[in-house]
Design a protein around this nucleic acid. Structure first.
Lengths: 197, 197, 197, 197
DNA sequence: AATGAATGAGTTTTCATTCAT
DNA sequence: CATGAATGAAAACTCATTCAT
């Protein structure tokens, strides 16, 4: 059982692509420019991904899997619903804070999926849909434990959107990051949930 | 004081463009296809807008102004902060529910602005920034009235993102629209705010 | 009922393309070079033909239709099978002599159809098949009149191939063209047919 | 005097290439695909042939030499011109029937030579020209024996083209192969030749 | 000798924009 | 003003060939 070099190289490309988009934005993106940035030939990408779109889809899916990993690893160690909810708030905010390029990709994915709604007609659309589902399902279970009875699915969705999009605030106001933002948001959400029991 | 035909035609184009994007998505968008859809020649657009991007920026700005108009018209009639907050929740959700095409445009604007952060370097970026500011400022004032002291700007932003993005839920789950979603969200937010006093 | 400018322009492009291939061969062919040769922009071709392959298919079909027109126009005026056969021999040889570029295209079509056998799976393949059929059917009727009973379809095919490919001889031996080649071939074929009655 | 391994490998590659083209057609041909089909690495080909075109030229020349071998071996045993002519008709038709892939290559060679006329400017063009000449010269001698006086070169060429291209009929009509086609063609040609004495 | 990842020149194709009518 | 054919820059993609291992 040797090392999967193919996989390693794929991931190296995905990482560099993420980095490029993060630095220069999607408006600057082209296979040519990416090749120059990566210091490889254009054709090389096509040895690993069958088209530009496939490469971009993979970057998104790769990033999205990293978010989930971060989230679930900690969640598994926790029991109390309050702690689990706090973990989600904190981890999500932290993760996007450290990976702002993903935010851009997330946003752009909307365009690539050719619609804000991840289309169920293609594999990538289904991947994004499924990811959304696994995260909101997790939140749903937690708020269930907290005693929320009605509109659990909607509220889970609303909370998730809030966390994911909150990071835009840091992008717009780079100087205003504080340690206890996650805690404030957590208290805000927890109190809100109380009102829905 | 005659009729401003120029302006009328511009608005007719903006409306049709919004409609086209709403129906076919940005993935299908091209000046050619838009021309066919509008029943005019491609060149005509260039008599009213200096480029494709300007046209699209104008569509967004036109739509965004409609959101604000709806919001502020009702807000001016109200006094109590709870009522004003409820108006924002209700109006925003309702508006996007009725104008899902704007949601798509909003999303795509991210791409056009070539960055999720409305760039302060161009007029459109400034317009979007300013719009965001006027809405969050309004929310900030209201939650101030409600007694919130700390992190008012951030919380206003978080609430606004939640309302704007909540509509995605309807897009993903078309069958699940209910009358009292706005009320539930309002109660959730109001209770949350209490915790931050 | 005005002039069909679209059609006229299409035909002008087809003629020029034929000319280019005739002059420079398929090995030199590219949309770029063709554009330069025609004195128009690359993009122009795509306003009239949806892809490079469609353009090439159209050139062949256009040429092939010219062959048929030449053949059938005269055939309709004739009654005696000997006269009709002579017309086919003479017209085919003459036509290819005057339109050697078509010969090259005919040959290349083999490659484009991705097989020497015109594939029944695509429209172009069907067009070529049908053309082959209409010509050999015509020959078949004539040799029937001449009293041939057996293997009429095969013999018609063999005669047609001989006529179409005979022109290669002129290409290989440019100096050896003579007036009475058609007559000699006609006598050769006619006598051969006698033996198959 | 050891075994020429180099030559053995070259021939193994040529055989496999012929086979590949026969199975999948030139449209599917690429060095990559051929490598997979042969179970060797792309680079290997370049140890034996200096380019893709050289490889393909060699395949054609290899095949063409097999045709000639078949033809001449039997011819040497025969004396009567009728028998010799029948041998050519029969052997050519049989050979192409058994080696349809060559037909495809022959056809494609036209493209590679970048002209239907085998170009005298390169070695391959000269090879094809010479092959054509040795076959038509043989036919010319035979029809001379049969008493044909005029246009012997042209008639030889016409007969050869007819035999080579007759196989296309079998490709187009796979079900219609018969034992006595060669005989019918032979009688057709023989009778035709009588008329040219 | 064999390998196959990397290469990059060369192609096809798209589409916003212009401009003569 | 409206038109839409023509434009051509820019982008995606292919594949024969090379070369380090």
């Amino acid at each position: 059982m040797g090392i999967n070099f193919e996989q390693l190289k794929k991931e190296a490309i995905l990482k560099k692509t993420k980095e490029f988009i993060s630095k220069h934005g999607m408006g600057e993106f082209s296979m040519e420019k990416l090749a120059t940035y990566c210091g490889v030939a254009k054709g090389t990408f096509y040895n690993y991904f069958k088209s530009k779109n496939e490469l971009l889809y993979c970057v998104i899916e790769y990033s999205v899997d990293r978010v989930w990993e971060n989230l679930i690893k900690e969640d598994r160690k926790l029991k109390k619903p309050e702690e689990r909810l706090f973990n989600i708030v904190k981890t999500t905010i932290e993760f996007f804070k450290k990976n702002r390029d993903i935010l851009l990709l997330y946003a752009h994915e909307i365009k690539m999926a050719e619609c804000i709604i991840p289309s169920p007609e293609n594999e990538h659309g289904r991947f994004i849909s499924n990811h959304l589902k696994r995260v909101t399902d997790l939140i749903e279970k937690i708020i269930s434990q907290l005693g929320v009875k009605r509109k659990k699915q909607k509220i889970s969705f609303a909370i998730h959107e809030q966390l994911v999009n909150f990071n835009k605030f840091y992008l717009l106001n780079p100087e205003s990051e504080e340690e206890d933002d996650a805690e404030a948001l957590f208290r805000f959400i927890l109190a809100g949930l109380e009102a829905l029991k």
